[in-house]
Design a protein around this nucleic acid. Structure first.
Lengths: 367, 367
DNA sequence: TGGTGTCATGACATCGGTGTCATGACCTGC
DNA sequence: GCAGGTCATGACACCGATGTCATGACACCA
């Protein structure tokens, strides 16, 4: 690969003058400039990033640690939306900032993270974005002291800047949407109870019921915690059975994610229960491949991964822009990003009969 | 960030000795070594990749150009499987080779590619992997003369090394699988006819029929070319209508991809046609999120994206390993990668009645 | 005791750019 | 015609590593 010296020799000038043409940082006579440019493309010259960054002490690189690539096989993740959407949001922002994003995949193995950070440090990244595959507490201490970092989809106890989804708000709004359609018997088929998302969304679900004056019925909540395993489908069957083998079956079912909703569609069909005429179904994530392709299309809450990625990238760029290494201007608590409710054909008003059930239920609850 | 000089000063040795400790390329007394290591982690020293690569003239970087990130919203692509799987396969191989993969996203805009290549050249990448979003001829001339390249999912006319899916072989094997179950009336709901994949797969479909002595019936082939647009669903409805509003409806339907199959499931259900009892359904891609979650699970042909990525990465590494820049050892034609047939519940033998239909059909064809 | 060889270490140049400062050509005004 | 100023350009050092070669300490053997 040609160097600036080759160009200088060919153009009959000094390397410094070539540099001036490249950077337009000092006047160069137009005759000289032409000769230099001519020489540059005769040789196919491209300046070396390494040589520049060594002198300027700026790499222009942002590192991102994620499992999005090895997780392409998304069905393996406990929540359904691919991490890739987070990468997408962040990459779009970083690209506009004229910096280069360096993506490193963990292969799902946390023990590799220190090595990835080390590689980032060798490349002198200016900041690091750490992406978790689903909303959770950060499971390790990130090395790389002194490098600004922003966490995405996870959070730690020491106040590292973080961006997470507003799970409680999402499920709250989704439940409200069902209530607004007239539903009172709203079942909730959750993801594993230990998940951060499940805990927060359950709060949202209960709060929405409470505010509407609907009593909480534990029989309407079932958990599926074998996500992605062969036993999962049976578990979902069993949960649906429990919902419907009662006097007061639900008129709407909220599912922990869109994929779960997809499975529920198939099971309800086998049981001869029509969606949405007999029962409305609601998902979570707005994984459009599913929510828009299912028939009927799925009402769901958006898990705003792309927006989270974008927001985190902006935060990091802001951190880098302020010379002082003081993260004081940042809030201490994770930033929560809300998603929209996507209302589609799978949610309609319950049959009139459902109203009777509700009254029946209330009677039962008052015993 | 600390430099090798800082470490040397703190350890009371010369920078060169620190270098020797780092690279273990010359003997260092154990006393000195200990002092140096001590100094290194007191300072949190990490060697600069830039400084190293400038001297060695080796970057250890491989560039990859893809739209996988901005395409996360996969429904937009004319074929259903996310490009990300290609990235996954390639990244796994590159990582093992101790090189660093630099991923650049095109944002779906070809006019950005030259800039991406230029950035790669600034970083002195040793090779470039170019990934297309679906099987197609390469749509531009890649700049970056002199940098070894391998194309994935696309091909050019000048013999650039390339890796593509074996579309003909896949559809051939899939059709054979249906025939082996006793099907003779096999419909084919294709993707857009202009697609490389459609042309090749149609060949495979016809070849399988021919070899089984089954006449080709144009009425059993319908194309859907409004992929991802609002009109798409109506088009699929219309196609299914045509298949079934005849005397001799198909007993199996091959779909251009899994997503199309998913839509067909919904439509058949509305028409009261049971899958697989009344009609078997076959997909293409083995997009597991769909094929394994649909009920009944979908029989489909694997689109071997991950294997393609891995193979291409290996080819590139081989090219780099042989010092001579002669691509002579590589075949001139694109390498075709075959996928497996995944047999699942959506394909069973046709009802006995179907046999009658076949005879009926043959009669018709002979008129 | 001095010659020879091995071992550990350092001085110095170099990679490809860029910042700093110097230099020479040319123009301006008195 | 000469001081003073602007403009275009070059010489040189430096960034952080590493390759080459030199050097000094020490052990070994005759």
């Amino acid at each position: 690969m040609a160097t600036i010296y080759d160009v200088a020799r060919l153009a009959g000038v000094s390397p410094k003058t070539v540099s001036r043409v490249l950077n337009r940082d000092a006047p160069v006579s137009s005759k000289t400039r032409t000769a230099v440019i001519q020489a540059m493309d005769t040789l196919g010259y491209v300046p070396s990033h390494a040589a520049r960054s060594i002198k300027s002490n700026k790499s222009g690189l942002i590192g991102m640690i994620t499992g999005a690539i090895s997780n392409a096989d998304e069905a393996a993740a406990p929540t359904g939306l691919p991490e890739l959407f987070i990468v997408q949001g962040a990459q779009a922002v970083i690209e506009k900032s004229q910096k280069t994003l360096l993506i490193s995949d963990t292969g799902g193995r946390l023990d590799r993270v220190p090595n990835l950070v080390r590689t980032f440090q060798e490349h002198r990244v200016e900041g690091i974005l750490y992406v978790a595959d689903y909303h959770k507490p950060l499971e390790l201490t990130l090395p790389g002291q002194g490098v600004p970092k922003v966490l995405i989809n996870c959070f730690d106890a020491v106040g590292t800047p973080a961006v997470v989804p507003d799970d409680e708000g999402g499920q709250y709004a989704l439940t409200q949407a069902a209530i607004a359609q007239g539903h009172h018997r709203i079942a909730y088929l959750t993801l594993a109870p230990t998940l951060e998302a499940t805990k927060l969304r359950m709060r949202g679900y209960r709060r929405a019921l409470e505010e509407a004056g609907i009593g909480f019925d534990g029989a309407l909540v079932q958990a599926t915690d074998l996500y992605g395993t062969p036993g999962e489908h049976q578990l979902i069957w069993a949960a649906v059975d429990k919902f419907f083998d009662t006097d007061a079956p639900p008129t709407a079912i909220c599912c922990g994610n869109d994929r779960l909703a997809m499975a529920v569609y198939g099971i309800l069909r086998r049981r001869g229960i029509a969606v949405p005429e007999d029962v409305s179904v609601l998902g979570y994530d707005d994984h459009r491949l599913i929510s828009e392709t299912l028939f009927p299309a799925l009402t769901t809450a958006e898990l705003p991964y792309s927006a989270m990625g974008a927001r985190a990238a902006q935060m990091l760029l802001t951190l880098l822009a302020q010379d002082a290494p003081s993260p004081s201007s940042l809030p201490n608590a994770p930033i929560k990003i809300s998603g929209q409710i996507k209302t589609r054909a799978s949610l309609i008003a319950p049959r009139q009969a459902a109203h009777g059930n509700v009254i029946h239920l209330k009677g039962r609850n008052e015993i």
